[in-house]
């Protein structure tokens, strides 16, 4: 049976890399390794799409559609008629979910 986890949304553009090594510091699965003049993408299929590398890359050499791989959150979002990709309701109380977080966080940036 073919695994569902072979492919993901991680993309790496090594020509943009300035070798700051932040991606190798933040990745929890050693998807990136240090290289001589740019980071090396060594285990792309181990990526869990947490988004840490892309968010901490100062030159946008990495892109990934980040999200939490939680079936419970995705199924309950689907059952409530919400978008599986943007809803994230992991972790219990409704006041802690991302659905509400933008009100308190992004508004403050003046977005």
């Amino acid at each position: 049976m073919k695994s569902s986890y072979g492919e993901n949304t991680l993309e790496y553009f090594p020509e943009r890399c300035i070798n700051c090594r932040r991606c190798t510091q933040v990745c929890p699965h050693q998807v990136f390794a240090e290289g001589a003049d740019h980071a090396a993408l060594v285990h792309p299929s181990d990526c869990m799409e947490c988004g840490a590398c892309a968010l901490n890359c100062p030159v946008e050499a990495i892109s990934v559609q980040s999200g939490v791989g939680c079936a419970w959150a995705m199924i309950s979002a689907a059952l409530r008629g919400k978008d599986m990709d943007t809803e994230c309701s992991c972790g219990g109380a409704s006041d802690t979910c991302c659905g509400q977080a933008p009100d308190t966080i992004h508004d403050c940036q003046g977005k």
Binding site: S4, E7, Q65, G69, C70, A71, I75
Partner: peptide, 24 residues
Amino acid sequence: ALNFTGATTFTSRTGVKKEIFRYV
């Protein structure tokens, strides 16, 4: 078992979504 994905340290959203559509 599928719902345990969110408690683990390695499942990607793309993979979990694929699992949901394949097996639910």
